[in-house]
Amino acid sequence: MISNVLLYITAVLLVITYLYAVIAGNPVYSALSMGAAFFLTSFLFVLLGAPFLAAVQVIIYVGAMLVMFLFIIMMFDLNKTSTGTVRYKPSTIFSYFLIMVVLLIAFFMAKGVLKMPEGFTIVGFGSAENIGFNLMRYYLLPFELASFILLVGVFGAITFIKKRDKE
């Protein structure tokens, strides 16, 4: 019961923080609001019984990505833009709401169909042991493939930032 109440509070806060991240005129406010949203997402994982994912969410998204965003914003000195809210075109807002409505209808129509897959156990599902076991066993190939993607990220960065010898 308590966790249900917490879930709804978190959900509402999540929508507010992400919405502000999109409409905030000042990019620093936008990034900080996104940071708050990351924390709330991690709290969502805690409520779902996945402490490992919650920790990873904070370490990677808040610890690495958000700090990088802030660094880049400060490097470009985008701070001088307006402090109000961004004005979007009516067509953008319309298409956004269209997608939202379609998804909401889909979810409400399908309420009875959504069910736990067969052989699914809740106990220990999101634990670090379980994730580690699955990642290193059944998901070994995707795991290694992801490491190749990181390697390509390095190649891509080299492509654009490599210094040339000036003749």
Binding site: Y139, L141, P142, A146, I149, V152, G153, F155, F160
Partner: peptide, 25 residues
């Protein structure tokens, strides 16, 4: 034969192509 591998393969392919498009920088 798994949707996760499809996504990762697609990303590995695409992320390699983006810098190649901008290769002549």
């Amino acid at each position: 034969t798994n949707l996760i591998v499809i996504v990762l393969g697609l990303e590995l392919m695409s992320l390699s192509i983006y810098p190649l498009v901008g290769f002549t920088r």
